[in-house]
Nucleic acid binder design. Structure first.
Length: 843
RNA sequence: GCGGAAGUGGCGGAACGGCAGACGCGCUAGCCUCAGGAGCUAGUUGGAGCAAUCCAGUCGGGGUUCAAAUCCCCGCUUCCGCACCA
């Protein structure tokens, strides 16, 4: 018996694949393409099994599709810019570039030891000038189109990372990366106008039928479209006005006060005009800080004060008080609202607290309280309007569009759509990122760097302090330049780009990773894109995936691509836990794949990770489970080794089903049944766990079948003797073993390659064809059909698998057990159901 | 509060309205072995029975159907996302 040494097989075949460039590909319009991609990696230093689960999932898909005849692009790269490397530099003095390149080298080795079939010739790293040059190129295109712009604004500032965060990067008032409490700061920032694509990004979600519903919903909520109206209120006794946004204009007759956000522009004017400006401002300031504090802790106490000013409701013409309160958000809508306490939870809470008037204007029949005083909770559903002048008796939603039309006619408002989505702030006051390619000239202002001067390369900075401003500001000979327009003295922009810019288009770069003129060749991208199968963590459900959809549309408008959606099918893989927690260095529960490779080899590890649960589910790591799949690979190895000499070879002996014994027919049937199941489990359902279990069943069947032959099943130290002469037996075994080896290859590629050779085949597995499914064989043999009487299975009958329904009915009813149950009763119905199953109904 | 997903053995999980618990882990017994944390065979939802077999059973309660883990309604629980978005 040939000894099974997984570690040696890993090494042997990995070298072979590299030498033969087995996974490198070129554009080939004559073949169907398949683009399999896993979210690229941040080079943190070491990949743990949680990370590699994702790469194995993608590799199973890529290897399967390759054997199915597709021209498969399966590349990998590094999301190499980012704060951790810079923070490490501050701590240890190692330059971010040095540590990043070291980390990449180590992690690349890990992935290669796992046997992931990447086209390494296409490897990219975002920190290389040949990559980030095109971040800058795309930035300039966006600048030309007004999609990149600069504005002063209050931003989220992380005091620990010393940089700005996008709204998406603030979670519960804390930095997504380090968990520090985020502060507000006023800074000049660069923004990408993603809001211009808000509606398109929202509508595009409908076409993403192969994305998890959950991710689509999260994006839809994030974009947060709401239809309503913008209505102008005049301030009584002045020419000042302010606008409010509402989705419930039907309740406007119940607006008993107005509320401004503390940051609303009118607040400063009110303060200035008030008798005691100082006191006024102090109160506002309190709400501003309160607002922020409240949002951090989640303890939300609504507070506010009456400005003493009145607003005129343009529908009722009555004067209502204007308040300032912490619960109105400056960033959303117009930063001001009409408060309708009878029909809005927040307004109701506020009105009760400060004893403001409540007026019911929507009736819900019996449910409606007799008076506002009797009201205990606001009613927020649509209903019939009351106390609403000419609109009484009308009903929402129909009345809403009529009221908007009326407001438009009278010039006091208009219908409007609001989005929760904000423009994307991309400026970061850090070193390790893409320099923003603009120059600030005293005379010409903001001047874009000319295309021919790209890339603007990062200068080598020797010293990292981690204080305040961008480290780039201290590199004088880099910062001080001449203006490209006037030749006068000028300074470079010293902020760098958010690293999410890097990851918003990298999937396109893989189509043409060495292009020095353009981000990528449109023809190459046209062939490979869109990504057919994309997998990664659900933590990127909003940020990365939304930005990538945005960039794809921008590049479409620039003329580089001709499609809208970059990722056809998305799989969000679940995390791997150890002792109930996500693996992390600080908890000390990291499972290093290299330890597992040492002990069991790549194939057992790959099989285990695929088998333990469906890919999208979270899993708990188990050493015992890994032992189990190791035993399985060993079991496969032994059965192949046992028979290779006896039944191996190319071609297939003559064998018709009719000549087969029952056992041979059963094995052939199992083989084809397994082919069907494994193929659909991988390609259609993405149930990689059940694909593996089907293969285990086939192996079990092979052992049972072997028991029935003169050679027996493989046991330790008993090599099979002699040859099998019967062609039907050879055919059944060879067919089953070939199919097994081929289908296990995506999961256990090293072992499969070796077994393929043992079976006497020439040429590697990548070039071999996936076994083909024969439905005739799959349904051969007799089948046992259960017979149900009044919903309960009472008997089983055996019929040829191709028996007609009439024949099946006849056999079932003649069965003795069935007859004992139906004896003397009227048979009302006999149904032949799929399954198959005979269902008899008696009275 | 709003939105989403899900509740099946000791455990991970199977079952695209048709024999519930495939496959694996763990456990039990036997075989083999100098030995085994190796291998092979059998068993493993609960209850009754020597047994063939029977009864109950997929969070709880109703319903649709010849047939429900699966579809519908009500309730409970868990996980996840958003969270003062007007």
């Amino acid at each position: 018996m040939t000894e099974y040494k997984p570690q040696q097989l890993d090494e042997k075949w990995q070298q072979e694949w590299t030498a033969s460039k087995a996974f490198e590909v070129d554009v080939d319009p004559s073949r169907p393409k398949f683009y399999a991609l896993e979210m690229f990696a941040y080079p943190s230093g070491h990949a743990h099994v949680g990370h590699v689960r994702n790469y194995i999932i993608g590799d199973v898909m890529a290897r399967t599709k390759r054997m199915r005849g597709y021209n498969v692009l399966h590349p990998f790269g590094w999301d190499a810019f980012g704060l951790p490397a810079e923070n490490a530099a501050i701590k240890t003095g190692t330059h971010p570039e040095t540590s990043t390149l070291n980390n990449i080298a180590h992690m690349k080795g890990q992935l290669q030891r796992l046997g992931i079939s990447y086209a390494w010739a296409r490897e990219i790293a975002t920190c290389r000038p040949d990559y980030y040059k095109f971040n800058q190129w795309i930035f300039l295109k966006m600048f030309e189109r007004g999609l990149a712009y600069r504005k002063r604004s209050t931003v989220n500032w992380c005091p620990s990372c010393n940089t700005v965060l996008a709204n998406e990067q603030v979670i519960d008032g804390r930095c997504w990366r380090c968990g520090s409490t985020v502060e507000a700061r006023d800074l000049e920032q660069w923004f990408f106008r993603i809001t211009q694509y808000a509606d398109e990004l929202l509508k595009g979600l409908d076409s993403l039928t192969e994305w998890p519903e959950k991710v689509v919903v999260m994006q839809r909520n994030w974009i947060g479209r709401s239809e309503g109206a913008r209505i102008t209120f005049r301030v009584a006794g002045s020419d000042q006005t302010f606008e409010i946004f509402t989705t419930r204009i039907d309740t406007i007759y119940g607006a008993t006060f107005g509320v401004l956000a503390p940051e609303h522009p009118l607040v400063d004017r009110f303060a200035a005009e008030s008798p005691e400006p100082q006191a006024f401002r102090a109160r506002v300031a309190k709400f501003r800080s309160l607002d922020r504090e409240a949002r951090l802790t989640g303890a939300v106490e609504k507070e506010g004060f009456d400005t003493g000013r009145k607003a005129i409701n343009p529908f009722t013409n009555e004067e209502v008080p204007i308040w300032i309160a912490n619960f109105v958000l400056a960033e959303y809508g117009t930063g001001a609202i009409m408060a309708v306490p009878a029909h809005d939870d927040r307004d109701y809470e506020f009105a009760r607290k400060y004893d403001l008037p409540i007026r019911i204007v929507v009736s819900h029949g019996d449910q409606t309280p007799a008076s506002a005083d009797a009201m205990t909770t606001p009613t927020t559903n649509y209903g019939v309007l009351v106390n609403s002048g000419p609109w009484n008796g009308r009903e929402a939603p129909a009345v809403i569009s009529d009221m908007i039309r009326d407001a438009e006619k009278r010039g006091i408002g208009k219908g409007e759509v609001q989005y929760r989505l904000k423009d994307w702030g991309i400026s970061r006051q850090r070193y390790w990122g893409t320099p923003i390619p603009v120059i600030h000239c005293e005379k010409d202002g903001v001047v874009p760097v000319p295309y021919e001067d790209l890339p603007v390369e990062l200068p080598k900075v020797a010293h990292f302090t981690g204080r305040g401003d961008s480290p780039l500001a201290q590199v004088a000979d880099w910062v001080n330049v001449t203006c490209p327009k006037c030749g006068g003295p000028a300074r470079r922009e010293t902020d760098t780009m958010d690293t999410f810019v890097d990851s918003s288009w990298y999937f396109l770069r893989f189509a043409d990773p060495t292009n020095s003129e353009l981000p990528f060749d449109p023809v190459a991208a046209g062939y490979w894109m869109p990504v057919d199968f994309y997998s990664g963590g659900v933590e990127h459900a909003i940020l990365h995936l939304l930005y990538s959809r945005f960039f794809t549309r921008v590049l479409r408008d620039v003329g580089l691509v001709n499609f809208d959606e970059p990722f056809t099918r998305l799989l969000t893989q679940g995390m791997v836990l150890k002792n109930g927690a996500v693996m992390s260095k600080s908890i000390g529960n990291v499972v290093d794949p290299d330890d597992m490779l040492q002990k069991y080899g790549a194939d057992a590890l790959r099989l285990y990770v695929m088998f333990v649960a469906p890919p999208e589910k979270e899993v708990e790591w188990s050493d015992a489970g890994l032992e189990g799949t190791f035993r399985f690979v060993f079991r496969v190895w032994r059965i192949v080794d046992h028979w290779a000499e006896t039944v191996g070879g190319e071609g297939m002996p003559e064998s018709s089903l009719a000549e087969c014994t029952d056992a041979e027919r059963a094995l052939r049937r199992k083989t084809h049944d397994t082919i069907r199941r494994v193929t659909t489990d991988i390609e259609e359902r993405m149930h990689l766990n059940t694909a593996v279990s089907s293969l285990m069943e086939l192996v079990n069947e092979l052992y049972s079948f072997s028991e029935g032959t003169a050679h027996g099943a493989p046991t330790r130290g008993e090599p099979p003797a002699g040859r099998i002469e019967r062609p039907q037996t050879i055919a059944a075994l060879r067919e089953a073993l070939d199919a097994l080896v081929l289908m296990i290859a995506p999961f256990a590629p090293h072992t499969a390659e070796e077994m393929w050779k043992m079976m006497g085949h020439v040429g590697g597995l990548a070039a071999a064809k996936w076994p083909s499914f024969d439905p005739e064989v799959a349904k051969a043999d007799h089948v046992e059909v259960p017979v149900q009487i009044n919903g309960k299975v009472r008997a089983r009958v055996t019929v040829p698998a191709d028996a007609s329904e009439d024949r099946l009915r006849e056999v079932a009813l003649s069965n003795t057990i069935v007859q004992s149950h139906t004896n003397g009763k009227t048979i009302r119905k006999v149904v032949i159901a799929k399954g198959p199953l005979v269902s008899v109904v008696v009275s």
